[in-house]
């Protein structure tokens, strides 16, 4: 006998729901306190892309991003979640404008954090110029929000990963949580292979893709601050943990981040593969890292890859 749905607590449902498999709306419903989510510019307003019709392509009523506000452990938060299955979660004009508006509202209020659930391949090719502009405006809006005292947390664990301009925006956030299937990069595997040749990067070598761009490597490099197991409850707990960790933002913090990145480059810049980096970090049997279960990996990562809290 399975338990009837109404007897399952929200936390149990969130724990048993894969973040990777869930839709943007389900992720938000289970990430936030039950019933607390309220949407801005919902699908019934039909703010669809003005470009897709020209290309004879189907639209989505929310243009692939859900924005709004809710409560996380009783504290108010702004949230944005990209739908990675609609056009690869890519940024178009309306999609981008919804996130920009949310971040600007957060800057004005200055006390409510913003959670961005990235799930994107980058700019939507059919809206290239508008999409590129949106990325630039979002990056500026993130930095302005942080300057106003807003904590901006990125959660990455969707099927489209976080690529292209999404990778750039993630790099601007106060902190990131990532799961194993969540990938963070700018150029994707196929893009690198097309431009630099298969000797540089074989996009069909999935193991290479995961260990180069996957969540475990990003966590060990310090690009992501927390590693979450692939369920919504783990991401909820990661977001709460990060909101408690993020310190004040200013020029000192940016200088410390620059120093951290320069130090990382001088230490690992000559490494040819992620496994070489893990070995250089002092991880015994570095080649087994991709096989480690989440709990064992988190123990390892907490020992090795803690980002200095002075940086970012």
């Amino acid at each position: 006998m399975t338990t009837p749905l109404e007897d399952v607590t929200p936390a149990e449902r969130a724990r048993s729901t894969s973040f990777y498999e869930a839709s943007a709306r389900t992720r938000l419903e289970l990430l936030l306190d039950a019933g607390s989510f309220a949407e801005f510019i919902g699908p019934e307003q039909r703010e669809v892309s003005p470009h897709l019709k020209i290309f004879d392509l189907p639209e989505q009523f929310d243009d692939g991003i859900v924005v709004g506000h809710g409560r996380l452990d009783d504290s108010p938060v702004f949230v944005a979640a990209q739908e990675g299955r609609f056009m690869g979660g890519a940024f178009g004009e309306v999609h981008g404008a919804k996130l920009i508006g949310l971040l600007r509202a957060a800057s004005q209020i200055a006390s409510m954090p913003v959670l961005i659930l990235f799930d994107t391949g980058g700019v939507r090719l059919q809206e290239a110029n508008a999409g590129e502009l949106a990325i630039a405006e979002i990056m500026r809006a993130v930095m302005e929000a942080r300057s106003a005292g807003v904590k901006v947390v990125g959660l990455i664990g969707g099927r489209s990963g976080c690529y292209g301009g999404g990778g750039l925006i993630a790099g601007c956030c106060s902190a990131l949580a990532v799961s194993e299937p969540g990938r963070i990069a700018v150029s994707g595997p196929e893009v690198i292979e097309t431009n630099r040749g298969v000797e540089e990067f074989d996009s069909r070598d999935r193991a290479l893709v995961w260990r180069t761009m996957g969540g475990k490597h990003r966590r060990l490099l310090g690009a992501a601050d927390v590693f979450a197991d692939d369920n919504v409850q783990d991401f909820r707990e990661a977001a709460l943990e990060l909101l408690g960790l993020i310190g004040p933002f200013g020029l000192d913090r940016l200088k410390a981040e620059q120093e951290r990145l320069a130090d990382r480059l001088s230490r690992y810049g000559a490494c040819l593969d992620a496994v070489d980096i893990w070995a250089a970090q002092g991880i015994a049997h570095a080649e087994t890292v991709p096989q480690l279960p989440a709990d064992q990996f988190i123990t390892l990562a907490d020992r090795i890859g803690r980002t200095s809290r002075d940086a970012r």
Binding site: P43, F61, D62
Partner: peptide
Amino acid sequence: QSAIVGVVASGNLEVLVE
């Protein structure tokens, strides 16, 4: 007053009901 299910992807659809 309204509800939405599904996503627009290959072999899939969204239904907005009002």
